[in-house]
Design a protein around this nucleic acid. Structure first.
Lengths: 153, 153
DNA sequence: ATCATGTCATTGACATGTCAGCCATAGGAG
DNA sequence: CTCCTATGGCTGACATGTCAATGACATGAT
C-alpha cells in the first residue's frame, strides 16, 4: 500500500515552498539593491570580481566561465552587453588563435571598486544580520548537504 | 576603530556564497528536471497549480498574480506564452469590464495532472532527502527568519 | 452628470538565461 | 603534410524577467 512514500509530506512541502520562495525573494532584493546602488547586475559583479582578482586583470574567456560557474554561451552574451557599456574589453589571445581574453577596463575597475562596499553591506544586512550565529552555521551546513546531494550534472 | 563592523567577515561571506550558489544550483536542477519530465517551466507549474485549486478552475488575473506572488506584467507575458501553447484561455470578466479571467484548459489540466507526481518526487529527492530531519526543520526556520527580515517592498 | 484619481491588464523595450548549431583553430594519428 | 576530432568562442532563436508607459474602466467627490 501507499505507493507514495517517495513523495514529500504536507509539512515537507510547506517547508520547501517557504524555503524556495524566500531564497528567491532574498535574491531579488539583493539584485534590486545592487542595481540601485551601483548600476551593476549580479552577473556584472561576478565577472568584475573574477577579473579584479586575476593576474593582469585579464582572463581567458573559458577560464572566466569556469571560475564563476557559467556556461560559455551565457558568458559570451553577457560579455557582449558589458563590452557595450565599456566595463570590459575583448582582445585576441596570443597563444591560441581561437581564444579570446577578457580585460578589465578602467571604467569596469572603478565600477567594481564603488560597488564592493555597498554590496557587502547589503549581504550583511539582508542575510547575516537576519540569522542567529547558530542559524548561520546551520545555513552553511544545509547548503553543503544540498550541494553534496545534487547530481553531478 | 574598524569602520567595517557593518561588513560580513570572511567566514560569513563564504557561508553566503555557498548558500546562494547552492540554492541557485538546486533551483536549476529542479527546473531542468521539470522541463525534461513534463515540458513545463516552474512558472507554468505555479500558474497551473493555482488554477487547479481555484473554484471553477478560473481566476481573475490579479488574484492569480497575488496568489503566486508575481507582478502583473510578468503574469501577462507568461499567460500570453501559455495561451499560445493552449495551456490556458483568457476570457472577459462579467463583473468588471477592465478585468480578465484566466481559465484552465483541458490541455493545461492534463499537463498539470501529469506533472504533479514527477515534480513532487524531484522535490523529495533533491531537497527533502538531502537533509536530516533536524536540518529540514532548521531550513524552515532559517527561511522564516530571512523572510521576516526582508524589507516590506 | 462630471471630473479626478486609482485600478486592471497589456504592451514595448530591454536585460538575462538556455539550447543547439556554427566556424575557426588546435592537436594528434596516419 | 593531411585528415579527424575536440575545443573555444560566437550566434540566433527563443523563454523568462523587470520597468515604465498606456488605455480602458471603476469609483468617489462635487
Amino acid at each position: 500500500m501507499a505507493g507514495q512514500r517517495n513523495l514529500p509530506t504536507r509539512d515537507e512541502l510547506r517547508t520547501w515552498r517557504e524555503f524556495v520562495e524566500t531564497t528567491e525573494a532574498l535574491r531579488g532584493h539583493l539584485t534590486a539593491r545592487l542595481q540601485r546602488d551601483t548600476g551593476l547586475s549580479p552577473g556584472d559583479y561576478a565577472v568584475l570580481l573574477a577579473l579584479s582578482e586575476a593576474p593582469g586583470t585579464r582572463l581567458r574567456s573559458s577560464e572566466l566561465a569556469t571560475l564563476i560557474g557559467w556556461e560559455r554561451s551565457r558568458l559570451s552574451h553577457h560579455l557582449a552587453r558589458m563590452e557595450r557599456r565599456q566595463l570590459i574589453r575583448r582582445e585576441e589571445c596570443a597563444t591560441d588563435n581561437r581564444g579570446a581574453e577578457v580585460v578589465l577596463s578602467e571604467t569596469g575597475a572603478e565600477a567594481f571598486r564603488a560597488a564592493t562596499v555597498p554590496h557587502l553591506r547589503a549581504i550583511r544586512e539582508l542575510f547575516v544580520d537576519a540569522l542567529t550565529p547558530e542559524q548561520l552555521t546551520a545555513a552553511g551546513e544545509i547548503a553543503a548537504a544540498l550541494r553534496a546531494h545534487l547530481p553531478d550534472r
